[in-house]
Design a protein around this nucleic acid. Structure first.
Lengths: 205, 205
DNA sequence: TAGCGCATTGACACTTGGTGTCATGCAAGG
DNA sequence: CCTTGCATGACACCAAGTGTCAATGCGCTA
């Protein structure tokens, strides 16, 4: 009965390959630019076959965007964990801060990836596509929190969108300033702007 | 000296080919789905070579998204044309209504395209990429209107983002209801939600 | 009218992203 | 020891997109 160990062994192996791939990819992409690097180069550097690459990542963009995949789930989880009585602006600010805090902590690595994404149209497109999913999840959670119907009320979707707007704005300014500006301060500033709508827009906030 | 006529003749020829291509593409894509239609099919239906297709459109996605290209310029133009003293929420609402009104007018055609875009990840990604550009333009114009510095203030970018959020929400609900819901009413509803932030967020609005 | 330039097109080869398929290898488990 | 299953690699293949060049068509001019 070594079931738990076996699973973790196989999982660790998978994780190892995935890490090797992301490592090689991020290295090359940040160095030469997204379009100038082929998948064959990446797999060559990582020592696996092209087919294996696409078993781990759905696309060449995915290897970069996947790096930020947890952000969405982290945000939603945090929003769901916030106290029920909290105002939307507060709950969303804390939710959005989860991934931003991660970025602030691992600034060297995160900055490289963020700059790569924001500066590459194809990557930006995929990133925004992901965010659209996050927005739906956030909206659903927000609707639950506030007791609204996501299908008839515009507020949940708009509020989630505003929060992600703040997220994007902070990311943009942070990467644009080479990491000089303080993410926490930027986040507070952004939410100060959108808070009036977040807290007034919901019926009986 | 028939310079004016010649130019317009060549332009008309180009426009003719472009129209033929978009027509054939939209027909096929709406019918069989984005991934199930190859560029070769489209050019076969339009009677041109594959190479010519890519001389008119940068990508397969582009032939659909291009169809909505004017939206961005229309919005910015309208925003720039709004009276200087108008509150941001009003100016932006009018700006956003320009493309939405177009959709409402040509509902059969617009609805098909919008549903195709919102239902196809690859198209959605390209659409959002375009919107990111619109947001930058709107933010710049908004900063000019309000006398703010787009580089240091968060408000312009956030306000532009909120307006586009409203735009997206309206489009989503409109296409989701098969064109049943009234775009004008939805727009008003969306801006009622975000107006508090639009008008309060700007210093001395 | 004949000839000269200029732009558009088609044909074709080529690169690259991405997928289906199959055979091999390897590790767990009876 | 055998087998069962999973991850990988090798290979062929399709579709998107690009570079190149020859041909075609059209206006302009001598």
């Amino acid at each position: 009965m070594s079931s738990r160990r076996e699973i973790s062994l196989a999982e660790r192996k998978r994780q190892l390959v995935a890490d090797e791939l992301t490592e090689a990819a991020l290295q090359l992409l940040a160095l030469k630019g997204f379009d100038a690097v082929t998948v064959d180069e990446i797999v060559g550097a990582a020592g696996v076959s092209k087919r294996t690459f696409f078993r781990y990542f759905a696309s060449k963009e995915d290897v970069v965007v996947q790096f930020l995949a947890d952000m969405g789930t982290g945000m939603c989880a945090e929003l769901a964990a916030r106290p029920a009585g909290e105002r939307p602006s507060e709950a969303l600010r804390h939710a959005v801060w989860v991934p931003l805090g991660e970025c602030a902590d691992h600034s060297e690595r995160a900055l490289r990836v963020v700059r790569l994404i924001l500066g590459t149209p194809a990557l930006l497109a995929r990133f925004l596509e992901r965010q659209a999913q996050w927005r739906d999840d956030l909206a659903a959670e927000l609707a639950r929190r506030e007791g609204l119907d996501d299908a008839t009320e515009l507020y949940p979707r708009l509020a989630a969108g505003m929060a992600l707007n703040a997220f994007d704005a902070v990311l943009h300014r942070w990467s644009g300033s080479e990491g000089e500006e303080d993410p926490a301060g930027l986040t507070d500033g952004a939410f100060a702007v959108i808070a009036p709508a977040l807290d007034a827009g919901v019926p009986r906030g």
